[in-house]
Design a protein around this nucleic acid. Structure first.
Lengths: 338, 338
DNA sequence: CTGAAAGCGCTAACAA
DNA sequence: TTGTTAGCGCTTTCAG
């Protein structure tokens, strides 16, 4: 491995001292423009690129943060990463990806490595936004941020989507297109997201003066098959719903598929709204699915912003819920009921 | 930011010199076991963690590699990353993720940053395995590896899935269950993957003594809607196929959906095989989809292995095609035809 | 077996 | 305006 040119090489070729060369290259200090230009020319010519390791060692900041994911680069992690990286790369901060896949030992090893590399901060992300135990390793007060993930540690800063208000948004939209007999088909009860989204659903009904007790809520799993099955159950009753809020887009897809199979028109007879805005799914349903977007990329971006604040010394703790938004496609019909 | 303990602190508390402390902590050299134990105890007690930046600066290796993706953390990048990270983390090598999203300028900036951080190697990955221009920045002979991506640079090492043999596998499977009137529905012609998979399809037919000219090939887009439309076209003819090899799972899903809508039984009347093994899709089709897996996680793992070899000094160039495999579910029927 | 010191590449404080 | 030097934290000779 041929070693790369150092600032000493640049200085030598430019006929100045290293100190001068350094000054010339970092904009800092006062220098005769002529000298500066010469140094820079040499640097460019020999392909000098400052060694950030040395810089970081000196400065005590590595311009690097670590991301620990328990979601092995899954569907939710990627948009978050995208936003995070976009935000951080503007400050020339690099992000190191670590996959722990729910293995505490791996996680600990990764944190050790990150600490060794003297990252300026760590963000923890997960497959679901439920509470998780704090990192097992003592991070010595390193800036720490949980995204799409929460911890018991009250000192930690956690950023999660606002499932409840997202669900209210969805429900309100169904009411807005004139529906009154709503139902909710969702995932496993043990997910906090399921409980929050149900709460949002119920709240919105109450706010509209409807009786939530009359609105069926079916909890199952996060799959199309469950969506189909649940739909069959709802339509076995005497008073089937005219609108269904689904806990995620997969369920919604199952629901819509089954409605079509039953010859029930969406959105003419029944309106459906999903959750996730998983585009490949939402755009492939027939008709395309109106759904809730958790704005995960924005969440990641915000995480980057907050992490930088933490790194810059502004302390901050607590749980922050970021708003969801409604993406209207065609599965609910016109906004104004006819 | 309270500064972390250094090896000097450890040495001082243990009553030895820094040199001794270093030896004690690195397994190297000869030391009285008693001394070693004492040093280690102190180190553990005060939470000493060696500063890898200093280590790297000294050693000239950063134990870090960069990944440049043009696929903004998309569906194909994820499994590759997973395998790569798993492989590399065993050697305690960290991976820095950079997203360039097809913007050459961003890409260049990222490469600069990586060079500054003195990464030991760079892997480039993409949304599709087609040829791309080499990195715009001079990497000074840094180990470089293209995964799921190729470049014109003949000196580069490129790892891609073997689309052609994957397609042969799929086609052979259809023939193996007794089908003879095959068709192929696929994506846009401009994708190399489309051309290779078609070639594999044709080869397999020829190998079986069938006339490829008689087997329709419909190129369109990578969507369910196209799958449905193409199926309608095939069944508008006098001699519809009894087996369809689809260029990806989305198309396959559209095909299967439409077959069901037409009341044609899968797999009794028609066999279908997909490509990608995108589990969420493949498992949701009715019946579940038999498909080709590009083994991207393994590809990523292999990339890690090869990159380590490059870093360790073994030169290697050229295009390497990694095998795909067949995942049998239920959309083709029994292996032995009745 | 252990201590002292040079040096990895860079920056910043101080001299000239 | 420019040069000199100490030091960031670690490893690795080379003496002791």
């Amino acid at each position: 491995m041929k070693t790369r040119p150092t600032i000493r090489d640049v200085a030598q070729l430019a006929g100045v001292s290293v100190g001068t060369a350094s000054k010339a290259l970092t904009e800092s200090g006062k220098l005769r423009p002529e000298t500066r230009a010469r140094v820079r020319a040499i640097a460019k010519e020999i392909g000098f690129r400052p060694n950030d390791l040395a810089h970081s060692l000196h400065r005590g900041q590595s311009q690097t943060v670590g991301v620990i994911s328990t979601d092995s680069f899954g569907r939710f992690t990627m948009p978050i990463m995208e936003g995070l990286e976009a935000c951080l790369s503007e400050r020339r901060i690099s992000v190191i990806m670590c996959n722990a896949t729910d293995d505490p030992e791996r996680e600990a090893r990764h944190v050790e490595t990150l600490l060794g590399k003297r990252v300026d901060g760590i963000v923890v992300t997960a497959r679901r936004a439920d509470r998780r135990p704090p990192l097992a390793v003592d991070t010595h007060g390193l800036p720490l941020l949980y995204v799409f993930s929460r911890t018991e540690d009250p000192d930690a800063l956690c950023l999660v989507p606002d499932d409840e208000s997202g669900a209210q948004l969805a429900t309100a939209h169904l009411l807005g297109v004139g529906r009154r007999r709503l139902a909710h088909i969702t995932g496993p009860e043990r997910f906090e997201a399921v409980r929050l989204r149900r709460a949002g659903f119920v709240n919105a009904l109450q706010a509209a003066g409807l009786d939530p007790g009359a609105a069926p809520v079916l909890a199952g799993v996060w799959s199309e098959a469950w969506g189909r099955e649940a739909l069959d159950r709802l339509f076995a009753s005497a008073q089937p719903p005219d609108a269904i809020f689904c806990g995620n887009d997969l369920i919604a897809r199952g629901v819509i598929d089954r409605l079509r199979e039953r010859g029930i028109d969406v959105p003419a007879a029944v309106s459906v709204v999903g959750f996730d805005n998983w585009e490949i799914i939402a755009e492939a349903t027939r008709p395309p699915l109106t759904t809730i977007d958790m704005n995960l990329t924005r969440l990641g971006h915000e995480a980057g912003r907050r992490l930088i604040e933490l790194i810059d010394g502004a302390p901050s703790t607590g749980l922050q819920r970021m708003p969801c938004s409604l993406v209207v496609r065609e599965s609910c019909g016109a906004r104004a009921p006819t």
